[in-house]
Every structure is written in C-alpha cells, then in structure tokens.
Amino acid sequence: MPERLRTAVAFALLALSLPLWPVALPATALWARRERRRRRSSGYAVLWPSMARTLVAHAEAWIGSAPPPSGWGVYVRNVDRYLSLVRGPSVGLQVALLVAMEYAPLLTLRGRFSRLPLGTRRHLLARRYLVPGGLLSPLAWSRQLVRLGWHADPETRRRSGHAFRPEGRERRTLRARTATVAVA
C-alpha cells in the first residue's frame, strides 16, 4: 500500500476511534503504571523496559544489527545512566520522543517500532524520520541517545584508539614542559 494511503487510512481510523478514547486513556494510564513498576524491577533509573527495546531496535536499524562490543545491556545502561544524571525538562522530552518513536509506525498502519522487521525499521528511519522538515523528523533526535549508548561503550572507545590523556608519566612530562614555557 502506498505510504500516503497508509497514513490517510491510519488517521481515518484514529478519527473513527474517537468515541473509544475515554476508555483508552485510563488503559494508557494503567499501562504507564505497569511500565514504571517494571522499570524498578529491571534496575533502570529512568527508562521503561519498552523504551529499552525501542533503543535496541533503533540501534539495530541505524548502526548495525550486531550488538556493540559490550552487548545491548551495557548499551541501554549507558543511556539510562546519562538520563538519570541530567537535570531539567529535556529528560521528559527525550523520554517522550522515545515513546513516540515506538508508536509512530501505527500512523502508517504498521506495528510498534521495536517489533517491526529490520528492513522496515531501516526504511522508516531513512524515509520518514530523517526527511528534513518531515512530520516525524523530530523523532530522529532519539538517535543522539542511540549514539551515546553505543559510543560510550568502553570497549568501543578502546577499539577507536582514543585515550584520555595525559595520565601517569606523560602528564608529569607535560607539567614539566609547561613550567619551562612559563619561565621562558
């Protein structure tokens, strides 16, 4: 089915479902409550388990289907740790974007993002989320979380060749050098 027709049909169904919304809203609240409870049991500080699945699905489609060197668990925890340290409303916005990303495919008569086949996810990212100025382009911002989780992996950093410096002997040498410059 063409993309525009899918969207039109989805919006028509959404409009037809309006009378059901009073029932759907309490159901959504219950679902959110359950997710929060599961967050506690999964050990995350900010992310709900469903958001963790969205992040993994996004990374598979965006960066590569193989997990990062330290595995998906470390990847998700990197994101969770970062979000738990941030102060301010942007955490709420980033979390909202993740939820929106998971459910946005429903607007094109598809399933939830994390349950879509890899090819469909890649297609959605390239054709819907990364279109400059497109309706769903703000959702592409969650890719920053994907990048953060992936590249904060210590093993990825090690393989990149990057090292924080100067440490140990090199640091002492540099200190001595700066003193020389200062006197000169």
């Binding site: 960066i63 590569g64 590249h151 990825t156 950093r157 393989r159 990149s160 990057h162």
Partner: peptide, 12 residues
C-alpha cells in the same frame, strides 16, 4: 558516525 561504528579505528 555510522562508519565509525562499523570501524571504530577510523576515528584515528
């Protein structure tokens, strides 16, 4: 960024 993920040593 995606290239760097596939080949991290590219960063150097």
């Amino acid at each position: 960024d995606r290239l760097a993920a596939a080949r991290p040593d590219l960063y150097r």
